[in-house]
Write a protein that binds this DNA or RNA. Structure first.
Length: 635
RNA sequence: GCUGGUGUAGCUCAGCAGGUAGAGCAGCUGACUUGUAAUCAGCAGGUCGGGGGUUCGAUUCCGUCCACCAGCUCCA
């Protein structure tokens, strides 16, 4: 007998060798029906897994990540099986479950068309109806390679060859289809209730652009048809929030053919941008930062000294001035170094925090450009802090707190990643270890959960990245904190210690918004263009009923503007419904309807974008209301 | 940059087996003087992404360049 600890803490006894499925059946019929996989001592396994010793067991349904991944992973196998039936020449690459679905990469001579997808979907339905059992088996390495050779699957063969020594090589068989796979999977194909193939795209074998481009079919699956429908509806909803569409409709910014990746900010976008920058300046002043501005073009020699020439040249633009070679800055740090170096510093003056809203230019691949999210010039809300080694942790924590205070104003959720030393980086292992540990310690002291991104750091140091979500769940890196021992070395930065000797300061690079452009894009999608009053480019729109009210309206506009409110008036000769409709579509937070009654007793009829008609109130009452909302930065 | 797709009026889109284009909204003009999401009428608006080739003739066919979209790669 073995003892099995269930999720609720109860301990059950079973015969050794019992399968997970049998345990599930013994607990309840419903559970057995809905269970897709199981977590056994923390590892996700198939339901057919045999329990041989005491363990903890947590049955996973679609609602649990482990169950969901197994379900979608099996759907991807069904996709591969259908493709092999319809296109026997297709070679299989990989087919994992991903965040909102799954994909499978194929090497095929022809390109899949939408009609092909439809045919594949139909074949998948057949496979589901045929209800094949998924059977797991393992092979020793040489047999596994032989097996894949016989099946003419060169990509699978390569995968097996790259598996570490001693790794178990497992396969899953469903009907005539066998795939190399670590699993886990759901017991049979018939359990898949609702799926859809969503798109085809190219993808490099192993994500390396030097390798062959394969064809990737994306899809998703759900335990219920209604959930799939809801997912599709959400995607459509998200399209309406796309900042590129809203940016045009709300006249915030534009990107023209004449400047791919170089956005133009229009008057309304500038209002938003300036509010963000004003707020940023105010908060940074409070947090002990001084502001500087460094030039956009600097001599090429500087970039040799900083290491950018060796590590970042591909992304930089260059120019010539009077026969001299110059570079357009892709980062603000070298300029910041020069500012620090302009004079001697005492240990008493550290930490010194120098902030800069710096416009940087980077050559991004044309295919990577994406509205304001991915551009070729953007403004970083940068800062470089120079400090004593003993001040590192405290400074990092201060930055973490500052970033958190910004994001919470907008109600953003974020997650944090720690990126470690990349290939082709500067410095010694000791320096990197020290820097990485300092970041870790700060995160741990803050009790923050974080994911580690091996090899994803900057070339000069490790970093903590803050990722925000956009409207369709993609995450974008915004804030980052990077610890740097290299630049101070390269630029021979010093401070004078209490011993009267020169010492090397440590530096951090950090941004809060990341890029003002990207942050505005995320804000736009987050609010679906309906910015809260404190951010709205136009806060109030005054709508006179007819011409005789214009005089009152203009005086009212003046009064509100004197109080710092951003106001527009609609003096056109149109019906009130028409003016309201337009203001509503422009997502203006407040509309003031002005007719005879309002003119007579000096009031305004207030309509809120969110709540509709709020009734008549005095001008001062309205002013108080809106000013309070602005002061609170209400969302 | 790579793979696939797209490019027609300010916006959303129709059209063309090859004979130089049309709608709605927006704009302008006029009428209407209006109480919480579209008043009516008229007018104007386009080298059909750029430059080539085939053709008597190309917005339509072919190749090329540019831009955009999705994904890959890369990143704030």
């Amino acid at each position: 007998m073995i003892k099995i600890t269930l999720k609720d803490g109860s301990i059950m006894e079973y015969n050794k060798g019992i399968t997970v499925m049998e345990v599930a059946e013994s607990i309840s019929k419903g559970l057995a029906k809905n269970a897709l996989a199981a977590e056994i001592d923390g590892e996700v396994k198939d339901l057919s897994f045999k329990l041989e010793k005491d363990c903890s067991l947590n049955l996973l349904k679609f609602e649990e990540e482990g169950g969901r991944l197994a379900y979608r992973h099996t759907t991807s196998h069904v996709l591969a099986q259908a493709v092999k039936r319809l296109f026997p020449n297709a070679r299989l690459a990989i087919g994992p479950a991903i965040e909102n679905g799954f994909y499978y990469d194929f090497d095929v001579d022809r390109t899949f068309t939408p009609e092909d997808l439809e045919k594949i979907e139909n074949e998948m339905k057949n496979i589901i109806k045929e209800n094949h059992k998924l059977e797991r088996f393992t092979l020793p390495r040489d047999e596994a390679i032989k097996f894949m050779k016989e099946n003419n699957e060169p990509y699978k063969e390569e995968l097996i060859r790259d598996l570490p020594e001693g790794a178990e090589i497992s396969f899953y068989k469903q009907g005539e289809f066998v795939d190399l796979c670590a699993g886990p999977h759901i017991p049979e194909t018939g359990k898949i209730k609702a799926f859809k193939l969503t798109q085809v795209a190219g993808a490099y074998w192993r994500g390396d652009e030097k390798n062959k481009m394969l064809q990737r079919i994306y899809g998703t699956s759900f335990a219920r048809q209604s959930d799939l429908d809801e997912y599709i509806r959400r995607l459509e909803e998200a399209k309406k929030r796309d900042h590129r569409k809203l940016g045009r409709e709300l006249d915030l910014f534009t990107i023209m053919e004449e400047g791919p990746g170089f956005p133009f900010f229009l008057p309304k976008g500038m209002v938003l941008r300036n509010i963000l920058e004003d707020y940023w300046r105010q908060e940074h002043k409070k947090a002990g930062y001084q502001e500087i501005k460094t030039p956009i073009i600097l001599n090429e020699d500087l970039w040799h000294r900083s290491g950018h020439w060796d590590h970042y040249k591909e992304n930089m633009y260059f120019t010539k001035i009077d026969e001299g070679n110059y570079a357009i800055k892709p980062m603000n740090c070298p300029g910041g170094m020069l500012v620090y170096k302009r004079r001697l510093h005492s240990y008493r003056d550290l930490p010194q925090r120098m902030a800069e809203l710096g416009l940087v230019h980077r050559h991004e691949l044309s295919g990577a450009l994406h509205g304001l999210m991915r551009v070729r010039c953007f403004t970083q809300d940068d800062a470089h802090t120079f400090m004593l080694p003993s001040q590192i942790r405290e400074e990092i924590i201060k930055v973490i707190d500052l970033i958190d205070s910004f994001y919470s104003v907008f109600g953003f959720k974020y997650h944090v990643e720690l990126s470690t030393r990349p290939e082709n980086s500067m410095g010694t292992d000791e320096q990197w270890e020290m820097a990485t540990n300092a970041l870790k310690e700060a995160l741990e002291q803050k009790k923050m959960e974080y994911k580690i991104n091996e090899g994803d750091g900057a070339f000069y140091g490790p970093k903590i990245d803050f990722h925000l979500e956009d409207c369709i769940g993609r995450t974008w890196q915004c804030g980052t904190i990077q610890l740097d021992f290299q630049m101070p070395e390269r630029f021979d930065l010093t401070y004078v210690g209490d011993d009267g000797e020169k010492h090397r300061p440590v530096m951090i690079h950090r941004v809060v918004f990341g890029s003002i452009e990207r942050f505005i894009a995320i804000l736009t999608e987050h609010y679906a263009g309906a910015f809260p009053v404190w951010l709205a480019p136009v806060q109030v729109k005054i709508l006179p009923l007819v011409e005789k009210h214009h005089e009152y309206v203009l005086a009212l506009q003046n009064q509100l503007e004197q109080s710092g409110i951003r106001v527009e008036t609609d003096l056109r000769n149109e019906k009130i419904g028409y003016k309201i409709r337009e203001a509503q579509l422009e997502k203006v937070p407040y509309m003031l309807v002005i007719g005879d009654k309002e003119v007579e007793n000096g009031s305004v009829a207030v309509r809120s974008r969110k709540e509709g008609d709020l009734g008549v109130m005095g001008i001062n009452e309205f002013l108080k209301r809106i000013q309070e909302e602005v002061d609170k930065k209400a969302n």
